[in-house]
Design a protein around this nucleic acid. Sequence first.
DNA 1: GCGCACTGAGTGAGGATTCACTCATTGCTC
DNA 2: GAGCAATGAGTGAATCCTCACTCAGTGCGC
Lengths: 215, 215
Amino acid sequence: MSESSLSARRSRGRPSARTVRGGDKRERILDAAVRVFARKGFYLTRVSEVAKAAGVADGTIYLYFKSKDDLLVSLFENRIQRLLTYLDTELPRIASATYKLQKIIELQLGLLEGERDLAEVVTVILRQSTKLMKEYAAPRFTAYFDTIAKVIAEGQASGELRADISPHLAARAIFGALDAITMTWALGKAEPGGLLRASGQIVELVLRGLSPAAP
Amino acid sequence: MSESSLSARRSRGRPSARTVRGGDKRERILDAAVRVFARKGFYLTRVSEVAKAAGVADGTIYLYFKSKDDLLVSLFENRIQRLLTYLDTELPRIASATYKLQKIIELQLGLLEGERDLAEVVTVILRQSTKLMKEYAAPRFTAYFDTIAKVIAEGQASGELRADISPHLAARAIFGALDAITMTWALGKAEPGGLLRASGQIVELVLRGLSPAAP
DNA sequence: GCGCACTGAGTGAGGATTCACTCATTGCTC
DNA sequence: GAGCAATGAGTGAATCCTCACTCAGTGCGC
């Protein structure tokens, strides 16, 4: 079932990417969806509102997305892919585990800085659909945790990081810290630069937390 | 408006606490609600399902709660009050900021250990209603953050903790770490004792992270 | 009998999805 | 290049289903 919901994401016989009229409607719908979802939440958002915000008819949404659920998942997929792709290419180039951690933290916060609506969708809205959360998002989160945990384990092996903390636990803690900071930032005033400034301090906090004991 | 929703929580002319028949129905409904909300999420839960799980009629729920929203808020209120009350009485008795932090961490994880459904409600379900989140839960979270931040600021003033990190930022990071750990625990296997074991390591992590620089 | 907790079938509103229709565009034919 | 037919993206009103909530009743406890 989770399988079906995953494969279903890929919309069926959609119009070709270069549509004759209107241009990239799919992109416009996604843009509108981030904005509307962020303002009203998933369940309180009417599909017709997204359509209106995107400047298309209600039915058009169903030409590009299977359902309202599919719209949310596609949104997440579409935007978050950047982060994962970037990590996959960048991390291997960094030798030190501490610098890798620093990069991860800066990336996660940096991606959402300047994209408040996206931040809110990722930290709050995505979790509003239990079905999506359990079937789709949870495994994605796990995969991300694993990436972080692997970096920590490397650092422990090399002696760069303290070895008396479970890498998976630490990974979840780091993710949670970043997530909570992003959430309060998005739900609150969201001052520009707020996340970037935070990232420096969090790097500090995490790296000292994971530093080997002073002899 | 947030005011009205808050005051509205108090149910109107409910049956007296000592009902003649059936005993404390209100409690039974709350118990059922935790279980059903945890399994299906707020929006996918039908009020009739909660009624069925509680062994009462649909209408009975409305004798004790104003609405489905009210049911969720009452649930949170009812259960989480323990944590806050306990903190308010216990924290002042502890002198050292580091021990206070330790207490907070152990309490937050300890409260939910053994109450998996409640853990899921607090970490996941509560956030499903954007309205509740923004009107009701966000201020509660903020108050909790403030408590933690105050402890950190105290520790900084006394030199127990490093002073180059914003107390509010650190508070959110700590909360987020605990929250993410609880969430993955609740959504995953939720092994007994898992949270307690985690709490020791998190205390370690946080306290070293906040420790003053080694000279 | 009276009052009150309780019941649960019924109601109405709301909203996701559908689908019969429109018409700009394309490309075929002469 | 004009006329014409075919195409299929786009539309949005209508459909139809799903619940949250209501309220006319039921029967228990006194």
